[in-house]
Computed example of a mutant assay.
Amino acid sequence: MTDIRPRRSVLYMPGANERALEKAKTIDADALILDLEDSVAPDAKEQGRDNVCAAVRSGEYGHRELAIRVNSIGTEWHDDDVKAAAAAGPDAILVPKVESAEQVRALVAAMEAAGAPEHTQLWAMIETPRALLHAEEIAGAHERLTVIVMGTNDIVNETYGLHVPGRNPVVLTALSWTLIAVRAAGKVVIDGVYNDVRNEEGFAAEARQGREMGFDGKTLIHPSQVEPCNEAFSPSEADIERAQGLIAAFDEAVEAGAGVATYNNKLVEELHVRDAKRILAFADALASR
């Protein structure tokens, strides 16, 4: 099985806010997106760029995966953001509003021209109707693109929809469509944000929905969302016990010459074993951080 890196909780942190970047060192998120786009005012873009690059270079964020979100293609800040981020060498550079495979390849070329180290991946946001129509092409455009992040707020905005509990049908379609495309490419896909930071019950329900759909994790806008998100996307003790028992039952059946087994009165086939092994591998990855 390939190396597993947990990305249950992926927290946005405003790049112009030095206190927030300092606080992020103590937050138990799996990944941090140090943001230069939406959370940074135009007159603070350069300061934010300096802040996030210094944060990456500090090496003080422990197990947390660090991604720098640059400004989108075509903005006056994009090229300088990519050059600075590549030089800082984060785990990833996240680009918003990617809409084509050609853009992915151009972004990789720009990262390489700027000297991005091999460990710096490209992450891309899918958040426009055009991107949704080309999700499979985007996800499979280049091996350096490893993670797709859903921009659900922009999807609602650009389709003239409404934010509703449980998410509106267009958003659910966009999430499902993109998840299938990303899985076909063998990449990671992260669910979008939940806006009402005071609605704990609503957040828990949406995080659970994302896990049930098959997302690897969820992007977050407030530290209070990290713990419930980690819980939603982690296997429970019951999940782990079930996975172990299922594998043992199947192995016993194979040794007896059978192709299938039963566990807790349910049919067990090889595909169930693969899923059980994935759950245990993820639990091991969490335990070894």
Rank of each mutant, 00 (worst) to 15 (best):
D284H: 02
D81L: 08
E143D: 15
S224G: 12
H142E: 10
E76D: 14
L220W: 07
V95Y: 01
G214R: 10
P223N: 09
K277P: 00
V273D: 06
D239E: 06
R274T: 10
L145N: 10
D196E: 14
R69N: 06
R69Y: 04
P6C: 02
A283M: 00
R64Y: 00
V189C: 15
I190W: 07
L21F: 01
K277D: 01
T173D: 12
Y194V: 13
S224M: 13
A256T: 03
V193S: 13
V188L: 10
A238W: 00
R274C: 02
F215P: 11
D30V: 04
E143H: 11
I240S: 00
I148W: 05
D239V: 00
E118T: 11
N264L: 05
G259D: 12
V147E: 13
S9M: 05
S100C: 01
R183A: 07
E65K: 04
G48F: 02
E60M: 11
A44H: 13
V171T: 15
M111G: 10
L246M: 14
I148H: 06
A181D: 06
F250G: 03
R7C: 09
R19Q: 11
F282P: 02
V108H: 07
N157I: 04
R19T: 10
G48K: 05
L34F: 08
W177P: 00
K25F: 00
L145F: 10
F250H: 12
S236A: 07
E76L: 11
G217Y: 06
V52D: 09
I221T: 07
A141T: 03
R278Q: 13
M150W: 11
H272M: 11
P169R: 08
D154V: 11
P96F: 02
A67L: 13
A92C: 07
M125V: 14
P42N: 06
L271T: 13
A114R: 04
D79R: 10
L11Y: 06
E270Q: 12
A185M: 10
L280A: 02
E227W: 01
E127T: 06
D28F: 00
A253K: 04
P223A: 09
N195T: 15
K45Q: 08
R5A: 08
V188F: 02
P117V: 09
E231R: 14
L36F: 06
A31M: 06
R183E: 13
L267F: 08
D80E: 14
L271M: 14
L271G: 03
T75I: 05
Y160R: 14
S39Q: 03
A106I: 01
Y160Q: 12
N71G: 04
G210W: 08
L172V: 11
W77A: 08
G245D: 02
V268E: 08
I190Y: 09
A87H: 07
G259R: 08
Q103V: 00
Q244M: 07
N168S: 14
I190F: 09
R278S: 12
G257N: 05
A204R: 15
R49C: 09
L122G: 05
E136I: 02
A283W: 00
A276K: 01
Y12G: 03
D28E: 11
M213K: 06
R144H: 09
V164D: 10
E137R: 13
D216I: 02
I279V: 15
T120A: 10
D81Y: 04
V104M: 01
A256Y: 04
L34A: 04
V104K: 01
